[in-house]
Amino acid sequence: MLEVAPMLEVAGLQVAYGAIQAVRDVSLTLAQGELVTLLGANGAGKSSTLMCIAGALPAAGGSVRLEGADVTSARPEVMARKGVATVPETRDVFPDLTVDENLQLGAYTRRRDTQGVAEDRARMFEMFPLLAERSGQPAGTLSGGEQQMLVIARAMMSRPRVLLLDEPSLGLAPTIVDQIFEMIAALKRSGLTILLVEQNASKALAVADRAYVMRLGRIAAEGTAAEIAAATDLKALYLAG
């Protein structure tokens, strides 16, 4: 039987900033529809890994494959066109653009499908009534939680096949964090493949299928979410990281 290529396959990835190597050797796979979380302490190289997959950072070595096709160091706009949507850690709304314009840009790759875009926009406003209320307001005036909702909604406007989510809970109030994780779970149920980078390990492991733990630029442990959650050395990995 022919084996189906995984949705996303990263092998031996390296990322460097000048002489400093942030990612030394990272390999991971995401099957179609899987939610995989990438855990690790601050500075372990999680975000660099994610931004490199997204095409925003060049790879210094290794490869990234999307459904078997080599996309290593592809330009970010090419990755977006191939169906990989990215929500960076820095929660990059365009502050001077209105909420509506932000969403409209999210659908840039399918801008000719005006009807579909309009439908999705209505769907997003249904899902996030707060955004609907503020659709004409500059995105910079939203609260942190609202901005996070907006960037996720904006990413979904492209109807991606893979979603790369970087620390969606960072700096948000606990109730909003709960909402965000509910939303991630809902996105997973809809069949989306998700790579979730998180520091909030317990929350992430609760929604994920599988997990990788990064330490000093390498994968230090991997397994199902349950296995990783049960592993006693989890805390040690973080503290040492």
């Binding site: 970010p76 990755m79 999210g106 790759t109």
Partner: peptide, 16 residues
């Protein structure tokens, strides 16, 4: 306008 504030993010949305 988006590219003027954050070029990389605009590119990650598919803007060439």
């Amino acid at each position: 306008r988006a590219a003027a504030t954050n070029f990389t993010m605009a590119r990650m949305l598919g803007v060439p």
